[in-house]
Design a protein around this nucleic acid. Structure first.
Length: 114
DNA sequence: CACCTGACATAAT
DNA sequence: AATTATGCCAGGT
C-alpha cells in the first residue's frame, strides 16, 4: 500500500510553470531555469523536474544541461530514458549531434522577470 | 535540527 | 579531453 502521491512544493510548481512556457521546438537549460526562478542552484531545479508529477503538460524533456548536453531524464543520466528524450526533441525539431545540441540557437531564453 | 542526496555548474588537476 | 573537487539550493531521512 503505497501512500498517496506527494504534493508538489511551491518551488516545484514554480519550475513546472516555467517550463510550460517553453515553446515547442525549443529547449532550455537548468541554469537558465534557475536564473529565471531566481534560484542559484540548477541542481535544485533538476530535482524538481525529476519529481515532475505533471506529465506532458510540463515538457520536462525540453530542459537540457547548460553545456548543451542532453542532461537527464526519468531519473537517469543515460540509457533508454535518455534516448526517448532525444527522440521527443527530434520530433519537435530539436536535433542533437554527438550528444550535444546541434543548434544552440534553439535554446529558449526566459523573458526578463521584474 | 544535522546530515545526505541529487535529471547541475564551474574550476582545477 | 577526462576525472575530481567544490559550490549552490531544495527535499528527504
Amino acid at each position: 500500500m503505497e501512500k498517496p502521491s506527494r504534493v508538489a512544493t511551491a518551488f516545484e510548481e514554480r519550475v513546472y510553470t516555467a517550463i510550460r512556457r517553453i515553446p515547442r521546438g525549443k529547449v532550455t537549460t537548468y541554469k537558465h531555469l534557475a536564473v529565471a526562478l531566481d534560484c542559484g542552484s540548477s541542481q535544485a531545479v533538476g530535482q524538481a523536474l525529476k519529481r515532475n508529477p505533471y506529465a506532458p503538460e510540463a515538457p520536462c524533456h525540453r530542459v537540457i544541461a547548460s553545456t548543451l548536453t542532453i542532461g537527464g531524464f526519468a531519473g537517469h543520466t543515460d540509457g533508454e530514458e535518455i534516448r526517448r528524450k532525444l527522440r521527443m526533441l527530434a520530433e519537435e525539431g530539436v536535433a542533437f549531434t554527438d550528444g550535444k545540441l546541434a543548434d544552440p540557437k534553439q535554446v529558449y531564453v526566459f523573458p526578463k522577470s521584474r
